[in-house]
Design a binder for these strands. Structure first.
Length: 176
DNA sequence: TTAAGGATCTCCT
DNA sequence: GGAGATCCTTAAA
């Protein structure tokens, strides 16, 4: 279990950075065209899985990429899956890393995110509301004007975000 | 059938 | 800070 601390919005079909750009509907993107609450999982660079939440009503191929999580329970299992060299902070502070730690792969494609084994839940009532910063999305330089949109959101306090403001190679800015 | 190119991570310097 | 890993998806022929 973990707390989501970083995410990015992808708004096809207009959004050039989205896999569903232009209404591209294939076996891979199919789940994004369906109802919300399901998992869109895909492979990047032939190596790493990425985990997205399908959002918005059926027909609108929108998704939210989960980029980082703060590990809460099952740390030993996560470390085991990630390799013994992974430090606590390195367990889930990146989209590929968290998929490895949570054992998310193609088998999770289309999974119902309201039911075990992979599901979202409300934060505890007593949990403080995090201060959320935003920046441009990561790794989508090819997307033209869309690359500049501040559609990456992350918890200002969390040490588990993938790129810290000020230390990033490109694209980071903080606003509100 | 083929070729090109990724919504990254790790290891090395 | 930079290169290599590595294979699926897509589009075009």
């Amino acid at each position: 279990m973990g707390r989501i601390v970083e995410a990015e919005a992808y708004r096809g079909p207009e959004d050039r950075a989205a896999h569903s750009f232009g209404g591209r509907r294939t076996a891979r993107t199919e789940v994004m065209f369906g109802p919300p609450g399901y998992a869109y999982v895909f492979l990047v660079y032939g190596l790493h899985w990425h985990f997205n939440l399908v959002t918005t009503a059926a027909g609108a191929p929108h998704a939210v990429l989960i980029r980082a999580v703060e590990p809460l329970e099952g740390l030993e299992l996560m470390a085991d899956r990630r390799g013994s060299s992974a430090s606590h902070r390195d367990l889930t502070n990146g989209p590929g890393k968290l998929c490895s730690a949570f054992a998310i792969d193609r088998a999770a494609y289309g999974a119902d995110l309201t039911r075990a084994p992979l599901f979202l839940s409300e934060p505890p009532r007593e949990a403080a509301r995090p201060r959320v910063l935003r920046s441009p999305r990561i790794g989508i330089d090819y997307a033209g004007d869309w690359a500049a949109r501040p559609w990456r959101f992350y918890d200002a306090q969390s040490r588990s975000v993938s790129r810290r403001p000020g230390s990033a190679a490109r694209g980071n800015c903080s606003a509100r």
